[in-house]
Design a protein around this nucleic acid. Sequence first.
DNA 1: CGGTAGATTTCGTGA
DNA 2: TCACGAAGTCTACCG
Lengths: 223, 223
Amino acid sequence: MRLIVARCGVRYTGRLNAVLPESTRLLIFKSDGSVLVHADAGGYKPLNWMTPPTAIEEVDDRIVVRKHAGKAEDRLEIRIVEVLSDVSHEMGEAAGLEKDGVERDLQEALAAGPESLGEELRLVRREWPTDIGPVDLMCRDDADGWVAVEVKRIAGIEAVEQLVRYLERIRLDPARSDCRGVLAAQRFRPQAVTLAESRGIRCVEVDLAVLRGEREPELTLFS
Amino acid sequence: MRLIVARCGVRYTGRLNAVLPESTRLLIFKSDGSVLVHADAGGYKPLNWMTPPTAIEEVDDRIVVRKHAGKAEDRLEIRIVEVLSDVSHEMGEAAGLEKDGVERDLQEALAAGPESLGEELRLVRREWPTDIGPVDLMCRDDADGWVAVEVKRIAGIEAVEQLVRYLERIRLDPARSDCRGVLAAQRFRPQAVTLAESRGIRCVEVDLAVLRGEREPELTLFS
DNA sequence: CGGTAGATTTCGTGA
DNA sequence: TCACGAAGTCTACCG
């Protein structure tokens, strides 16, 4: 990894055109070809960047990073005015990041105990396929009625519409024409609840810690 | 800006829990409170991070970054094993990034020449307000019929549904009950075209360079 | 502060 | 390779 702190200007042409006026920045050249241009503020996002694979060329005060993106070319051109620091570090292998608490974990917990959705449900299968994509959970209720469950960390309007799309497809099959929809999420946007009600979809607020039995159940039911 | 290259392990707790095993990383502490943990590969995205405002505490071999996120707390804990480098740089004010070619530019170009949408249209106004948000362009055709235009760089299913939501609202007004919908984008996902057809929405592929007269027109019309 | 929509979204997965 | 959906999305804008 090479780290350059320099006064420089940057020009990007590719999916769009962007110009970065001359100022002091941090330039990061990773060993996999990644190039990042960071300012001393603005958090998280680089001002400009290029993801691998890249070809890097350095001539005089110019560093040009290229990448083939379809028929066109992505190009990042850095004009160095003054180098304040230029160091390289061997960093070796990077160990992977382990995450827990994403949507998949929610889905797993609900699959393990679908009765957490506030009614007697039996899981038929996870990732139930439809011709436009898989529904997160397909269940049957105590009267053997079909129930399609969409799981989200945060449920907005799109989540409701996604489930509606799936339900349309599922109900095409006469055997499942009465399939109900349930939307489960850790948080609901008010508009999502409103839209879900108008579409006959039940909303259930869930909590991963509760589902795992790590905390007191405090189930909230909408509608 | 402070740059530390160090062998370290990182733990994040907040919206989710994440553990980063011990390895050599680049730690960036920006003057606005941003903290980034980068590996020597993986481009663009930091492995872990915290956006401002943050409170940073450094005790012995531990750096703890805190942030209040609602009722809970976001916490990034860095355990330093070995420091390979630790430097700080004054970088001063950062000049802004100027972009061209984003959706807004596409919208501007279409507003300047709505006939590029393949029929005689007159612009009534940009960002036409509805009670659920603004439609990009509102136009009238040669028969004075209303036409709502949604502009996207890439149009997927969501784009169609967004326009459908707007049309529902617009048509509530008897004066615009016959309002048509047009979806304009540089690229269309196949499913978006299919869904748009079934909803009576016309899709028009546009190109910013062509709209600006910088390249040959090569208009593609779906449906 | 909360919701909506855009982003050079990036990133992973599955067909 | 392409398309689709999640993301600690982040970020700007608007109420």
